[in-house]
């Protein structure tokens, strides 16, 4: 199982980032909490559909859990279709966020928790 955390910098000590589609990068951990990979967020500079692009990149990397702050409705739909579990309520750093998740204190995001604010051209949830 691979767990991705939206981050402001490339490592576990970097601050975790609220925004899914616009974060600097994703830190990807294995189940034991070892860093497997740090990927630049392609969505960061995307003119349109940032969240969709970020979601696509995580789906390609076979991530099964995403820990973040806000996910737009389109990215949410994409992650769910790919069977990715999304949790919100990040802590200060990436490592702390992972710890918070492991202790079961993060909120599972439902489709309705995808706030339109996080997506840019927020659409209806049914897309």
């Amino acid at each position: 199982m691979r767990i991705a955390v939206s981050a402001a910098g490339p490592g576990p000590e970097a601050p975790a980032e609220e925004r899914f589609g616009r974060c600097a990068c994703f830190v990807i951990f294995d189940e034991q909490g070892n860093v497997e990979e740090v990927v630049d967020n392609a969505g960061k500079t995307a003119p349109e559909g940032a969240g969709v692009l970020s979601a696509q990149s995580l789906l390609r990397r076979k991530v099964s859990v995403v820990l973040t702050g806000r996910v737009g409705p389109k990215a949410m739909r994409a992650l769910q279709a790919g069977g990715v579990a999304v949790y919100t309520g990040i802590a200060g750093t990436v490592a702390e966020t992972l710890a918070k998740y492991k202790s079961g204190r993060m909120q599972p995001a439902t489709p309705s928790a995808g706030s339109p604010g996080a997506g840019r051209r927020a659409g209806r949830r049914d897309g």
């Binding site: 706030s115 604010g117 996080a118 997506g119 051209r121 927020a122």
Partner: peptide, 11 residues
């Protein structure tokens, strides 16, 4: 249109 939609999301 597009700019307003962009300005409203999440306010």
């Amino acid at each position: 249109g597009c700019p307003v939609i962009s300005a409203l999301g999440g306010t």
